[in-house]
Amino acid sequence: MRFKDVFSIIGPSMVGPSSSHTAGAVRIGRAARRIFGALPAQAEIKFYGSFAETYRGHGTDLAIAGGLLDYDTDDMRIRDSLTIADASGMTLAFKTGSNPAVHPNTAKLTLTGDGREDIITGSSIGGGNIELTGINGFDVKFTMNYPTLLVFHKDRPGMLADMTNILGDGGVNIGYMDVDRKGRSGDALTVIETDEAVPGALMERIRVLPDVQRVCLADLTAGEVKS
Protein backbone atom coordinates (compact mmCIF):
# COMPACT_ATOMS: atom_id res chain seq x y z
CA MET A 1 0.00 0.00 0.00
CA ARG A 2 1.47 3.33 -1.07
CA PHE A 3 -0.66 5.28 1.39
CA LYS A 4 -0.53 3.86 4.89
CA ASP A 5 -3.10 5.76 6.89
CA VAL A 6 -5.84 8.38 7.07
CA PHE A 7 -3.44 11.26 7.70
CA SER A 8 -1.60 10.61 4.46
CA ILE A 9 -4.96 11.42 2.82
CA ILE A 10 -6.33 14.15 5.14
CA GLY A 11 -3.20 16.20 5.84
CA PRO A 12 -0.63 17.47 6.27
CA SER A 13 -1.53 20.82 7.69
CA MET A 14 0.63 23.11 5.57
CA VAL A 15 1.21 26.51 4.05
CA GLY A 16 0.28 26.49 0.36
CA PRO A 17 0.30 26.36 -2.51
CA SER A 18 1.38 22.82 -3.36
CA SER A 19 1.61 19.65 -1.31
CA SER A 20 4.39 18.37 -3.57
CA HIS A 21 6.25 21.62 -4.37
CA THR A 22 5.83 23.29 -0.98
CA ALA A 23 5.03 20.87 1.87
CA GLY A 24 7.22 18.09 0.45
CA ALA A 25 10.05 20.59 -0.05
CA VAL A 26 9.80 21.72 3.59
CA ARG A 27 10.15 18.11 4.66
CA ILE A 28 13.19 17.56 2.40
CA GLY A 29 14.87 20.63 3.90
CA ARG A 30 13.98 19.63 7.43
CA ALA A 31 15.18 16.06 6.94
CA ALA A 32 18.50 17.42 5.67
CA ARG A 33 18.73 19.75 8.68
CA ARG A 34 18.11 16.85 11.08
CA ILE A 35 20.76 14.72 9.36
CA PHE A 36 23.29 17.55 9.37
CA GLY A 37 22.39 18.05 13.01
CA ALA A 38 22.63 21.85 13.10
CA LEU A 39 21.85 24.98 11.14
CA PRO A 40 24.36 24.93 8.28
CA ALA A 41 26.44 28.04 7.58
CA GLN A 42 26.02 27.50 3.85
CA ALA A 43 23.42 25.60 1.90
CA GLU A 44 23.50 25.11 -1.84
CA ILE A 45 20.21 23.82 -3.22
CA LYS A 46 19.97 22.45 -6.72
CA PHE A 47 16.49 21.87 -8.18
CA TYR A 48 15.68 19.33 -10.89
CA GLY A 49 12.67 18.69 -13.13
CA SER A 50 9.40 20.40 -12.24
CA PHE A 51 11.09 21.88 -9.14
CA ALA A 52 13.57 23.63 -11.43
CA GLU A 53 10.80 24.87 -13.75
CA THR A 54 8.40 26.27 -11.17
CA TYR A 55 10.22 26.66 -7.85
CA ARG A 56 9.75 30.40 -7.53
CA GLY A 57 6.02 30.33 -8.27
CA HIS A 58 5.46 27.56 -5.74
CA GLY A 59 7.73 29.01 -3.08
CA THR A 60 9.83 25.84 -3.19
CA ASP A 61 12.89 27.95 -2.32
CA LEU A 62 11.11 29.39 0.73
CA ALA A 63 9.98 25.89 1.66
CA ILE A 64 13.46 24.34 1.53
CA ALA A 65 14.87 27.27 3.52
CA GLY A 66 12.06 26.87 6.06
CA GLY A 67 12.89 23.20 6.40
CA LEU A 68 16.56 24.01 6.96
CA LEU A 69 15.40 26.37 9.73
CA ASP A 70 13.63 23.31 11.20
CA TYR A 71 10.12 24.58 10.51
CA ASP A 72 7.18 22.21 10.16
CA THR A 73 5.05 22.23 6.97
CA ASP A 74 2.44 24.61 8.48
CA ASP A 75 4.81 27.16 10.01
CA MET A 76 3.79 30.62 8.77
CA ARG A 77 7.41 31.81 9.07
CA ILE A 78 8.09 29.84 5.85
CA ARG A 79 6.82 32.86 3.93
CA ASP A 80 9.73 34.91 5.30
CA SER A 81 12.25 32.11 5.53
CA LEU A 82 14.79 33.61 3.12
CA THR A 83 15.03 36.76 5.24
CA ILE A 84 15.12 34.75 8.46
CA ALA A 85 17.82 32.46 7.06
CA ASP A 86 19.90 35.51 6.24
CA ALA A 87 19.43 36.95 9.73
CA SER A 88 20.30 33.56 11.26
CA GLY A 89 23.63 33.46 9.44
CA MET A 90 22.77 30.81 6.86
CA THR A 91 23.87 31.62 3.32
CA LEU A 92 21.65 30.09 0.65
CA ALA A 93 22.38 29.50 -3.03
CA PHE A 94 19.69 28.16 -5.38
CA LYS A 95 20.62 26.54 -8.67
CA THR A 96 18.88 24.42 -11.26
CA GLY A 97 20.07 21.36 -13.06
CA SER A 98 18.65 18.80 -15.42
CA ASN A 99 18.77 15.04 -15.17
CA PRO A 100 16.05 13.00 -16.84
CA ALA A 101 16.85 10.02 -14.63
CA VAL A 102 15.58 11.56 -11.40
CA HIS A 103 12.00 11.97 -10.15
CA PRO A 104 10.46 15.22 -11.54
CA ASN A 105 10.42 16.87 -8.11
CA THR A 106 13.97 16.47 -6.83
CA ALA A 107 16.33 18.68 -4.84
CA LYS A 108 19.98 18.13 -3.99
CA LEU A 109 21.20 19.94 -0.88
CA THR A 110 24.84 20.54 -0.04
CA LEU A 111 25.11 21.67 3.57
CA THR A 112 28.37 22.95 5.02
CA GLY A 113 29.43 24.44 8.31
CA ASP A 114 31.63 23.67 11.28
CA GLY A 115 34.17 22.06 8.93
CA ARG A 116 31.65 19.44 7.85
CA GLU A 117 29.68 18.76 4.69
CA ASP A 118 26.59 16.65 3.95
CA ILE A 119 25.12 16.15 0.49
CA ILE A 120 21.50 15.04 0.60
CA THR A 121 19.17 14.32 -2.33
CA GLY A 122 15.42 14.01 -1.90
CA SER A 123 12.27 13.79 -4.03
CA SER A 124 8.74 14.95 -3.30
CA ILE A 125 6.39 12.18 -4.41
CA GLY A 126 2.95 13.70 -3.76
CA GLY A 127 0.67 14.84 -0.95
CA GLY A 128 3.66 16.08 1.06
CA ASN A 129 5.30 12.66 1.10
CA ILE A 130 9.02 12.48 0.34
CA GLU A 131 11.78 9.99 -0.38
CA LEU A 132 15.42 10.65 0.41
CA THR A 133 17.49 8.91 -2.27
CA GLY A 134 21.09 9.92 -1.72
CA ILE A 135 23.26 10.70 1.31
CA ASN A 136 26.91 11.66 0.74
CA GLY A 137 27.20 9.48 -2.32
CA PHE A 138 25.36 6.49 -0.87
CA ASP A 139 22.30 5.32 -2.81
CA VAL A 140 19.61 4.64 -0.24
CA LYS A 141 15.86 5.16 -0.20
CA PHE A 142 13.74 6.07 2.80
CA THR A 143 10.68 8.19 3.58
CA MET A 144 11.23 10.02 6.88
CA ASN A 145 7.78 8.85 7.99
CA TYR A 146 9.39 7.10 10.94
CA PRO A 147 12.26 7.94 13.30
CA THR A 148 15.31 7.16 11.16
CA LEU A 149 18.79 6.22 12.34
CA LEU A 150 21.72 6.77 9.98
CA VAL A 151 24.91 4.90 10.80
CA PHE A 152 28.07 5.60 8.77
CA HIS A 153 30.53 2.75 9.20
CA LYS A 154 33.10 0.45 7.61
CA ASP A 155 31.78 -2.57 5.77
CA ARG A 156 32.71 -5.64 7.84
CA PRO A 157 31.19 -8.99 8.82
CA GLY A 158 28.81 -8.72 11.78
CA MET A 159 28.35 -4.97 11.59
CA LEU A 160 24.61 -5.13 11.00
CA ALA A 161 24.14 -7.78 13.68
CA ASP A 162 26.00 -5.62 16.20
CA MET A 163 23.69 -2.68 15.49
CA THR A 164 20.44 -4.58 15.37
CA ASN A 165 21.27 -6.50 18.56
CA ILE A 166 21.72 -3.22 20.43
CA LEU A 167 18.36 -1.96 19.14
CA GLY A 168 16.66 -5.27 19.90
CA ASP A 169 18.08 -5.31 23.46
CA GLY A 170 16.67 -1.83 23.94
CA GLY A 171 13.22 -2.90 22.78
CA VAL A 172 13.34 -0.80 19.60
CA ASN A 173 11.47 -2.40 16.68
CA ILE A 174 12.93 -2.01 13.19
CA GLY A 175 10.39 -1.45 10.40
CA TYR A 176 12.74 -1.04 7.44
CA MET A 177 16.47 -1.05 6.64
CA ASP A 178 18.61 -0.01 3.68
CA VAL A 179 22.36 -0.51 3.32
CA ASP A 180 24.76 0.79 0.67
CA ARG A 181 28.54 0.50 0.56
CA LYS A 182 31.11 2.11 -1.68
CA GLY A 183 32.98 -1.16 -2.04
CA ARG A 184 33.87 -4.34 -0.19
CA SER A 185 35.38 -3.40 3.19
CA GLY A 186 34.85 0.23 2.22
CA ASP A 187 32.66 2.96 3.63
CA ALA A 188 29.02 2.05 4.16
CA LEU A 189 25.78 3.68 5.26
CA THR A 190 23.03 1.82 7.06
CA VAL A 191 19.62 3.48 7.33
CA ILE A 192 17.26 2.06 9.94
CA GLU A 193 13.61 3.09 10.32
CA THR A 194 12.19 2.32 13.73
CA ASP A 195 8.71 2.39 15.27
CA GLU A 196 9.88 4.52 18.17
CA ALA A 197 12.71 7.07 18.46
CA VAL A 198 16.04 5.50 19.43
CA PRO A 199 17.04 6.60 22.96
CA GLY A 200 20.34 8.49 23.27
CA ALA A 201 21.91 5.72 25.33
CA LEU A 202 21.36 3.17 22.56
CA MET A 203 22.74 5.59 19.96
CA GLU A 204 25.84 6.00 22.09
CA ARG A 205 26.29 2.21 22.29
CA ILE A 206 26.14 2.05 18.48
CA ARG A 207 28.47 5.02 18.12
CA VAL A 208 31.25 3.33 20.12
CA LEU A 209 31.04 0.07 18.15
CA PRO A 210 34.29 -0.74 16.29
CA ASP A 211 34.32 0.72 12.76
CA VAL A 212 31.37 3.05 13.33
CA GLN A 213 32.21 6.57 12.16
CA ARG A 214 29.08 8.56 12.77
CA VAL A 215 25.53 8.05 14.03
CA CYS A 216 22.63 10.44 13.61
CA LEU A 217 18.92 10.29 14.33
CA ALA A 218 16.68 12.11 11.87
CA ASP A 219 13.18 12.18 13.28
CA LEU A 220 10.50 14.30 11.63
CA THR A 221 7.88 12.74 13.89
CA ALA A 222 9.29 14.71 16.82
CA GLY A 223 9.08 18.47 17.30
CA GLU A 224 12.53 19.27 18.63
CA VAL A 225 15.89 19.04 16.91
CA LYS A 226 17.96 16.06 17.91
CA SER A 227 21.55 15.76 16.88
Binding site: I10, V15, G16, G127
Partner: peptide, 15 residues
Protein backbone atom coordinates in the same frame (compact mmCIF):
# COMPACT_ATOMS: atom_id res chain seq x y z
CA UNK B 1 -5.76 31.00 0.90
CA UNK B 2 -3.67 28.11 -0.39
CA UNK B 3 -2.48 30.12 -3.40
CA UNK B 4 -1.47 32.95 -1.05
CA UNK B 5 0.80 30.59 0.93
CA UNK B 6 -1.72 30.61 3.75
CA UNK B 7 -2.33 27.63 6.02
CA UNK B 8 -4.56 24.81 4.74
CA UNK B 9 -4.92 21.05 5.10
CA UNK B 10 -4.18 18.90 2.04
CA UNK B 11 -7.46 17.03 1.32
CA UNK B 12 -6.12 14.92 -0.32
CA UNK B 13 -3.73 17.47 -1.90
CA UNK B 14 -3.19 21.21 -1.65
CA UNK B 15 -4.50 21.62 -5.20
Amino acid sequence: VNASMGRIVATPTAG
